[in-house]
Every structure is written in C-alpha cells, then in structure tokens.
Amino acid sequence: MRVVHDPAGDGDDEGGRTVLATDVAVADDALAKLRGLRFRSSLPDGFALVFPFEGVGRRDIDMLFVRTPIDVLWLVEERVERVDRLRPWLGFGLAKADCVIELPPGVAADVSTGDRVFLEDDGE
C-alpha cells in the first residue's frame, strides 16, 4: 500500500501525481490510534501512519512523547482539509477529517488544501 498525492485531483497520471509513502502502517484499532508515533525518535523515509475513522468528525493530533516533527494531513473523502507541521512534544492540531495521515517532516511540503491524497494498492 502507498499514499499518493494528486494535486490536480482528477486521477490523471499526467497531472503530477507523486507517491508520498510506500511503507504504510494503518492504526485501525483504539490502542494503535492512541499509541500513534509516540516514543519514536525518527521516521524512516517513505513511511506513513494512517488513521482511518468511521465518518467525518473533529480529529485532533497531539505530540506528547513524539520526539520528531511530523507533517499531518487531515482528509475528508480523499480531499485535504488541512496540512500542518507539528513540533515534537508540544505540537497540537485539530481539523475535520475521516482520515488523518502522519508523515516524516517535509514530505507534505507540496500538498495543499483541496488536493487529493489517497491510499493505493501497490500491486504486491
């Protein structure tokens, strides 16, 4: 599985689609969502942690015990609602989303509100 950024949002490969992550972990239960990236001092290149939710709601991310900055994407139906860089230990973000994606710092530098970001099977 990989995380794909489609700035044009039309699914056309010619529109500048890029792969943001190829090593994707999914936090699909309450314990995994609570743990998140806590206690990690770094993130490998190509890594993403995806938090899927049932329906759209206000989703918060705190950085307590996270020792590295991260980029965070809040998505609603694969559209970016918010992009933020959160600081280690003290960072906090809140936005409406049905999916939140955490990435190494700098990976989401070219992602903007309204862009399409989605998970795609990488064919393995």
Rank of each mutant, 00 (worst) to 15 (best):
E81T: 10
L43W: 01
D115G: 12
S112E: 15
R59F: 00
R58F: 14
I61R: 14
D28T: 11
C99Q: 14
V56W: 04
R67I: 06
R58D: 10
L119F: 00
R2Q: 14
A21T: 00
S41E: 14
P104M: 05
A21E: 00
L86N: 01
T22E: 02
R67F: 13
G16N: 10
V100G: 00
G106L: 08
S112G: 15
L37G: 09
V117S: 03
D115S: 14
D122P: 08
A48Y: 05
A32G: 02
R59A: 00
A48N: 08
F92R: 05
E102M: 10
F47M: 03
D12F: 13
A97I: 14
F39E: 11
R87F: 06
E124C: 02
R17Q: 10
L90D: 10
W74L: 13
A109N: 03
R79G: 01
L73S: 10
A108C: 11
R87D: 08
P88N: 09
L73G: 08
L34H: 15
V111C: 07
F51W: 08
L94F: 07
G93S: 08
A8S: 15
V83T: 12
A48R: 07
R67K: 10
D6G: 06
V111A: 08
V80M: 03
L75I: 08
D121Y: 01
L64P: 01
L20W: 02
I61D: 07
F65E: 15
D10L: 07
F51C: 05
F53P: 01
D12N: 15
L20Y: 01
A30M: 09
G57V: 03
L31C: 05
A97T: 09
R85E: 12
D23A: 14
F51L: 06
R82G: 00
D121M: 01
E120I: 02
R35P: 06
I61T: 12
D12S: 15
R87H: 07
V72Y: 04
A21C: 02
D12Y: 09
V107E: 05
W89S: 10
G91F: 14
V19Y: 07
D122H: 04
V56P: 00
G114W: 14
R79Q: 14
R40E: 14
D84H: 09
T113R: 09
A8V: 13
H5F: 01
T68C: 07
G46D: 07
G123D: 12
P88A: 10
P105L: 04
D62V: 03
R58I: 14
A109M: 02
G11K: 03
F92Q: 04
G91C: 10
L73R: 13
G9L: 15
L20S: 05
D13M: 15
D10I: 01
L90I: 03
A8Q: 14
R58L: 15
A32S: 06
H5M: 00
D62Y: 12
P105W: 10
E78Y: 02
E81K: 13
L75K: 09
A97S: 05
D110H: 08
D6V: 06
R87Y: 06
R40D: 15
V4Q: 04
